[in-house]
Design a protein around this nucleic acid. Structure first.
Lengths: 345, 345
DNA sequence: CTAGATACTGTAACCGCTTACAAGGTTTTT
DNA sequence: AAAAACCTTGTAAGCGGTTACAGTATCTAG
């Protein structure tokens, strides 16, 4: 028994363009013109149409528009995860610009059920989105570069080997260099490093910056002072316990390649009675909100700005067919108490 | 000069159902049946169709499907914000279930540019999404209850006055009661409260739980011991300074209605040389990741689970037309060091 | 005053898929 | 063996917009 019930369970069908055209006495093409704004319509006709639309509380069907117009006004964004909060600001930035420009955001997180290549392929090929924004993730595409290089894809905070896709990144190398220099200036020489997970783009870049700074400053980088962490609080704590195992003297400073690890490390050090920065200086990276409150010296990353910029590039690419350039955004060293000079020096 | 270039800038048009039907020698209806899986197709025909589709690397057009089939396979989710990270896990949970069931998630954050009612109305009425998940947000709808009560909307972590919309919430009242009881059992009597922003649903509910526990335990609740915070680290710090202003004796315990404030408060207390829990006990709410590492007693909220459950309800509602019930999820008291007994007692 | 340009509006052919209905072939029932 | 029931497939009419093209009215220029 067919009912006058649409898929939303609403008991009246949504009015269509034709309902509006009938009510206002013009053709459907004219109504379409009023709503798409792509062609001139005389003022009095426009008014009649809008009135009718309002009376019917008409809303244009997105599916029909997308099908006929080949534009979804939707940005796809793929994140490695969202729960850690690291990328939350990027998403906020993307959404902000999207809202400004009348776009919506389809956000996906890679998990057991779906891989990034599969998502990109599906969302783009099925025409669910007009462009894709891809966050840092170390997987590979099965598409050939000469194909995806011409797809409306923008990479955020990472690059892809052999691809010419535009990138919106940040200066991880420079940020790490600046931090090492700062620690050097504070008088620290025996500087230990706590890296992120191997293969992680941010971690690798930051590590590279450290190595450059070390060699420029003439510091010897004792490889035994580089520890591998996982960018988590827990791995910071674990590293702290390892530094405290008594097998070797404590370093003068520990540069953790992200704040989560720095915070874990600091709390564990303090629990053991080690003063920061009195006994050992600590620095982080990311400048998360808590860093300020824990007086942790860090490097501020323009996460939100990256999101905004990438969204802007994507929308310009779609609407103006304007091929974006790769951009590497500045980071900012934020000096706080944790990186100070040793007290007993 | 019209070119064979589609909206993605790809130089060949995407193949359609007809291309596949021509190549495999069956009708378009049969191809459709193969891909929608809604009707039986003989095994050898199915195989031929899938082979042709693969050769053409065909992907069904989402817009056409949505238009003809009146289903978008998309969930809309509206958050007050995402940057704080408080809701990040909810989004992760929603996305997880959506991925499992073949849905995508359109995430929107309320900001200057768009209000929640506008978003709900637009996304639903334009048929961009099949259902909407709405997070805690204190605004009002201009739709009449008898209209939106029948829309496929599920509320997460809040309810709406005069509405019968299904809710997936958590037991804020019970959680706060349990915390007050715990503090009482630890021997604390003069318990101060640091609330969230006035009008915030979570804050109000938790406060209600506190009041109930106070009266049940026969504790007098000194209103001057209730301070208004903003659910931020900074407001926790500010509250700490106020407690330390010397105008009145310190409370024995301070229950902050979220962890961010508790963390700010603790760091400020410790900076002032006050020991936690030696001089004053502190408790938070939310059990954020940092709480464990700072030994903060807190209440664990099932954020991810709420997201999952709401997504499941929404999808069941859409696909099985199964009206979900309101659910209030259990929370869990997590006792750590910060709420311990006074040392100098 | 009339040809040509300009400004609106209407007609109708899609966009790519779903699905009600019909048709032909098989299998089961009586 | 004929009738009934069942399976599988094809035909074709939408779904609700966009837009090329054509037509009419108004304006400008010669």
């Amino acid at each position: 028994m067919p009912q006058a019930v649409n898929s939303n369970g609403v008991s009246k069908l949504q009015p269509t363009l034709y309902d509006v055209s009938r009510m206002s006495g013009v053709s459907s093409a004219t109504v379409s013109r009023v709503f798409s704004g792509k062609a001139r319509v005389s003022e009095h006709v426009r008014k009649r149409v809008l009135e009718a639309a309002k009376r019917l509380s008409y809303e244009p069907s997105h599916a029909a528009r997308a099908l006929a117009g080949r534009k979804t006004h939707t940005l796809g964004a793929i994140f490695p995860e969202i729960a850690s909060g690291f990328y939350a600001d990027v998403l906020a930035g993307i959404d902000e610009v999207a809202a400004e420009r009348g776009f919506d955001v389809l956000a996906s997180f890679v998990g057991k059920r779906r891989s990034r290549p599969e998502l990109v392929n599906r969302l783009l090929r099925q025409g669910r989105v007009d462009a894709m924004l891809l966050l840092n993730l170390d997987d590979t595409f099965d598409l050939k570069p000469d194909i995806y290089d011409h797809l409306p894809i923008i990479l955020i905070d990472h690059e892809m080997p052999d691809s010419k896709l535009p990138v919106v990144g940040m200066d991880n190398v420079g940020g790490a260099e600046a931090m090492i220099e700062h620690l050097f200036e504070q008088g620290h020489r025996r500087i230990a490093l706590l890296s992120g997970p191997a293969g992680n783009y941010d971690s690798d870049q930051r590590l590279l910056g450290c190595r450059r700074a070390f060699s420029r400053l003439g510091l010897s980088l004792d490889e035994s002072f580089i520890r591998n962490g996982a960018f988590t609080l827990a791995s910071g704590q674990k590293a702290a316990r390892e530094f405290l195992d008594g097998k070797r003297p404590l370093p003068e400073a520990i540069f953790c390649l992200n704040d989560a690890m720095a915070i874990g490390l600091m709390s564990e050090l303090q629990r053991a009675g080690i003063r920061v920065p009195g006994d050992v200086a600590v620095a982080g990276y990311d400048n998360v909100e808590a860093a300020e409150h824990l007086s942790l010296t860090s490097v501020a990353c323009p996460m939100r700005l990256m999101g905004q910029m990438a969204a802007r590039f994507a929308i310009d690419l779609i609407t103006e067919n304007e091929r974006p350039e790769t951009h590497r955004l500045q980071v900012r060293l934020v000096v706080r108490n944790s990186s100070g000079r040793k007290s007993g020096n």
